[in-house]
């Protein structure tokens, strides 16, 4: 998979997360599963909190010629929505962008084959999650860094297709095993598909699918 071209102005960087090791690790994890996506003909792909749009654009660029797939990106930050759109266009991909809080306005019909979420995972005070400044929303995860991501978890089985995959970026402090247990209670099987230690963060990519599926 090629790394997409992302152009962020200084003004964009005031509110939009600059692609970093966590973004690249998620792209690496998707690249490792690319043959599966092709053979399963994954067609509806959704990224929650797309930021610069680098990850969904990388996926779109890699899949578009095989699956004719559809890509949708969500972000609550209007600047991130704009930048995601620009990144998509600059890399000749076609991504529909919606400004939304998590998946609040998505009609959950279990149709998405790939869902991606690189959440704000940094452990902070709970109050920091409520900070109105958009840039802090890109990283402030509250208690154990899980406050934002946990709001989404119970929706995942309703959004995901039977053979679909959900990818989640976490760090060690978020307690990956605990998160895998939460999903087990939602009848989903999770595993760590990649991990990397960078600058004081031990990043993990978790991949989940519904149990009872191949």
């Amino acid at each position: 998979m090629e790394t997409p071209i992302v152009k962020l102005s200084n003004k964009d960087l005031d509110t939009v997360y600059e692609p970093s090791e966590d973004s690249f690790l998620l792209i690496d994890a998707l690249e490792a599963d690319l043959e599966t996506f092709k053979s399963q003909k994954s067609q509806l792909c959704l990224e929650i909190g797309s930021g610069s749009g680098i990850v969904i654009t990388a996926l779109a660029a890699a899949l578009k010629k095989y699956n004719g797939a559809y890509f949708c990106a969500i972000d609550l930050n209007p600047n991130a929505c704009k930048v995601t759109k620009e990144t998509s266009i600059a890399n000749s991909t076609n991504i529909d962008v919606i400004q939304m809080d998590l998946t609040n306005n998505i009609y959950a019909r279990g149709i998405f084959d790939i869902i991606l979420f690189n959440p704000p995972y940094v452990v902070t005070e709970s109050l920091e999650v409520l900070d109105e400044r958009l840039i802090s929303k890109t990283w402030a995860g509250g208690k154990e860094g899980r406050e934002v991501m946990e709001r989404l978890f119970e929706n995942i089985p309703k959004l995901l297709s039977d053979n679909g995959y959900f990818y989640l970026v976490v760090i060690k402090e978020n307690d990956p095993e605990y998160i895998i247990q939460i999903f087990k209670d939602l009848d989903m099987k999770g595993e760590v598909v990649m991990d990397r230690k960078v600058r004081g963060e031990h990043l993990h990519i978790l991949r989940f699918k519904k149990t009872g599926q191949n």
């Binding site: 559809y70 529909d96 919606i98 009609y107 019909r109």
Partner: peptide
């Protein structure tokens, strides 16, 4: 916004709204 995207959007999360679709 493509009509495929419109097909999956709802306003159900509004207070007092029961279906919010389409």
């Amino acid at each position: 916004m493509k009509l495929l995207t419109h097909n999956m959007l709802t306003s159900k999360c509004l207070k007092g709204v029961t279906v919010g679709y389409p």
